[in-house]
């Protein structure tokens, strides 16, 4: 029994996207600060990789890509493509302000033993839980909410897209995410379902890991207000990640809830 439990927990972890994998999922823009008055385009790559930000494992699916413009309107990405190692798409910025680009994955993952005694895996939403046979045994359901976010700004930065939505683990920038400079401190706040996520461990890594011998991870912890501050050591593209496991689920039948938040930030030189 104990062995079965362990195995199913492992299997569940293995199929949770972006959380349990050693590979780092990222959404990386070609640029983040653009001048107005131009025919402004940004291209994005989405991949899970061992190296930041090189593509060496697999593309991220873009089915749940949501692009929000400065006025709150949803935008359609263009030239969407899925390669062997990365997915990509282009974004045409037509209005000044800050855009939020997010891959939001919310779902349920189940392991069970069917009537024939075979181990089965299931993935879906709360509405589709009925797909799990009524006679299934050892049903274990986990809820997963994760997002992978990037911000880009045309002209003057705006903060409409920075407002929290109140669901899952989310980062609320106190310092504007397209106003980050080497040697300066930036402040952020993490929320869990709209409330400050205190004592949350946050990992920040600079890109270019392939070209150095150490990961040089920066480990940070949020305070009672869910806030933390980071002083960027050098210009470059940075990957930020926080994850929570064994949280109370919001879907009744789920045993536990896992949450993840990842963002890519560009830090400019002085």
């Amino acid at each position: 029994m104990k062995a079965t439990m362990k195995w199913s927990a492992f299997a569940l972890a293995a199929c949770l996207p972006m959380l349990a994998s050693a590979h780092k999922a990222f959404l990386v823009p070609s640029t983040t600060v653009l001048s107005e008055g131009s025919d402004a385009w940004v291209t994005f790559d989405a991949a899970a990789s061992n190296d930041l930000f090189n593509f060496n494992h697999r593309p991220l699916p873009l089915d749940n890509l949501v692009v929000t413009g400065p006025d709150g309107a949803k935008l359609s990405p263009q030239n969407v493509a899925r390669g062997e190692l990365r997915s990509s798409f282009d974004l045409h910025l037509e209005k000044p302000g800050t855009y939020r680009v997010a891959l939001a994955n919310s779902g349920l993952f189940a392991n069970y033993v069917d009537a024939k005694g075979e181990k089965k895996r299931w993935r879906g939403t709360a509405e589709k839980l009925g797909e799990i046979p009524a006679d299934a045994k050892n049903v274990e359901i986990a809820q997963s909410d994760s997002s992978n976010v990037s911000f880009v700004t045309l002209g003057k930065p705006s903060d409409g897209v920075l407002k929290p939505m109140g669901n899952g683990l989310e980062l609320v920038p106190v310092t504007h995410p397209n106003d980050l400079y080497a040697g300066e401190a930036a402040k952020f706040r993490f929320l869990l379902d709209g409330k400050p996520a205190k004592d949350l461990k946050v990992t920040v890594l600079a890109g270019g890991t392939r070209y150095r011998s150490r990961q040089d991870e920066m480990a940070l912890t949020t305070d009672a207000n869910g806030e933390f501050s980071i002083t960027w050591p050098a210009p470059g593209m940075y990957w930020l990640n926080a994850a929570l496991e064994a949280q109370k689920p919001t879907v009744a039948k789920a045993k536990e809830r896992r949450l993840g938040y990842t963002a890519t930030f560009e830090v400019l030189p002085q």
Binding site: G37, S38, K156
Partner: peptide, 24 residues
């Protein structure tokens, strides 16, 4: 055709401190 304003953000300190607030 490509407008020259495209590269104004390369004046990154000026862009940050003033340029992005301006209309050229």
């Amino acid at each position: 055709s490509e407008p020259g304003t495209k590269w104004l953000a390369d004046l990154r300190q000026w862009w940050r401190r003033s340029g992005r607030e301006q209309t050229l």
